[in-house]
């Protein structure tokens, strides 16, 4: 039987030992990554997105503990994998692109060597061969004058160029899965678009599956086949890109969409009041309830399960319970979604 998913995360719980107790950063996350597709994980800072992918890569900080859960890749549970097992997987099968290209390259090592050491160390290639391969990669990620750039140092590169190098390093191992952890956050907007195009192009050329982490919904719309919205260590809503943008069900997704700028809106952007909960002692019930205008009594008492909206669309909110009072998304957002629909149709034509 053909396994439909290249990577499956099941009920993952990760905690950090903190000074005031265990910080429950990830509290039961399920993710399915279909082969050759892109999924996006969206959420604000501290929602557990990065921790989830670090657990997948086996690069959690020393004080982190995986309390329970499974991460299935190629018939192996990565939660139980040893550091030696990870040497075969990390980089070679699952590549990672970081948030900050400024600090993720070694400032004292030539760019060329940072790419080519993947070949010389991991695959025992000769220096010349490794250089040839590295130059090829540098050209593939759009570095002009690769030959000359090969012998330069990171400080001689701009932010966007550095991120291209980081992408080249990730591609050097020819991974099956590419995890992009907010790859454009540290870049300015024009460069962002180019990097996103590059990732998209790479994905299509090489048939890589991509996990894309971001807090920028605008980025998601361009990239993802499927979207996971995370809040306080949990996936609160998941669905196809269209379902999340045009038919969101969770109040948190509403709030996220409302805070996203668009060109035509003349209203003030809505911000989400309050801050995410303290994860040392996560609140009872729905973690978003305290910031949620639509919260009901039950939200404060019991955690909502995942309600199914369609085959691909799920959301964890009591509003979807059959007995819940009918509740419409805010007018502001309805207008916005209408505009998005119109725009989508305009592009379709």
């Amino acid at each position: 039987m053909q396994e439909p998913y290249v990577l499956q995360v099941k009920d993952l719980h990760v905690s950090f030992k903190g000074q005031s107790g265990m910080v429950r950063a990830v509290r039961g996350v399920d993710i399915n990554l279909p082969k050759g597709k892109t999924i996006a994980i969206v959420g604000e800072s501290g929602s557990g997105k990065s921790v989830t992918v670090k657990a997948i890569m086996g690069i959690l900080a020393r004080n982190a503990v995986i309390d329970q859960g499974e991460i299935w890749y190629e018939g192996k549970d990565l939660v139980k994998a040893t550091e030696e097992d990870f040497y075969q997987i990390r980089g070679k099968k699952i590549g990672l692109i970081f948030q900050d290209p400024l600090s993720s390259l070694n400032p004292l090592m030539k760019i060329g060597k940072q790419i080519s050491e993947v070949f010389t160390v991991n695959y025992s290639m000769s220096k010349e061969e490794a250089k040839e391969k590295s130059l090829e990669l540098m050209r593939a990620v759009g570095i002009p004058k690769a030959e000359e750039r090969y012998n330069q140092y990171p400080f001689q590169f701009s932010g966007g160029m550095r991120q291209r190098i980081v992408i080249a390093i990730a591609l050097a191992n020819n991974p099956d899965i590419l995890i992009c952890d907010e790859p454009t956050t540290a870049l300015d907007v024009t460069v962002q678009a180019k990097i996103l195009d590059l990732i998209k192009q790479i994905k299509e050329e090489r048939g890589i599956s991509v996990i894309f982490i971001t807090h920028d919904l605008g980025v998601v719309a361009n990239m993802a086949d499927e979207v996971y919205v995370m809040y306080a260590g949990k996936v609160v809503e998941r669905g196809t890109c269209e379902e999340i943008f045009l038919d969101p069900r969770h109040p948190y997704t509403w709030a996220l969409l409302s805070s996203m700028p668009d060109l035509e809106s003349k209203d003030r952007l809505l911000s989400i009041p309050g801050t995410p909960p303290n994860m040392v002692s996560p609140p009872k019930g729905d973690a978003f309830a305290a910031r949620n205008r639509y919260a009901m009594q039950i939200d404060l008492e019991e955690e909502p399960p995942m309600f199914q909206v369609s085959d691909t669309h799920y959301a964890a909110t009591w509003l979807l319970h059959p007995k819940a009072p009918a509740c419409e998304m805010p007018k502001f957002l309805q207008d916005k979604i209408r505009r998005m629909r119109e725009e989508a149709q305009r592009y379709a034509r």
Binding site: R90, G91, S104, N106, E117, V118, V121, I169
Partner: peptide
């Protein structure tokens, strides 16, 4: 971290 995610031990 990047060096490790490259596949170096």
């Amino acid at each position: 971290v990047l060096a490790r995610t490259k596949g170096l031990t």
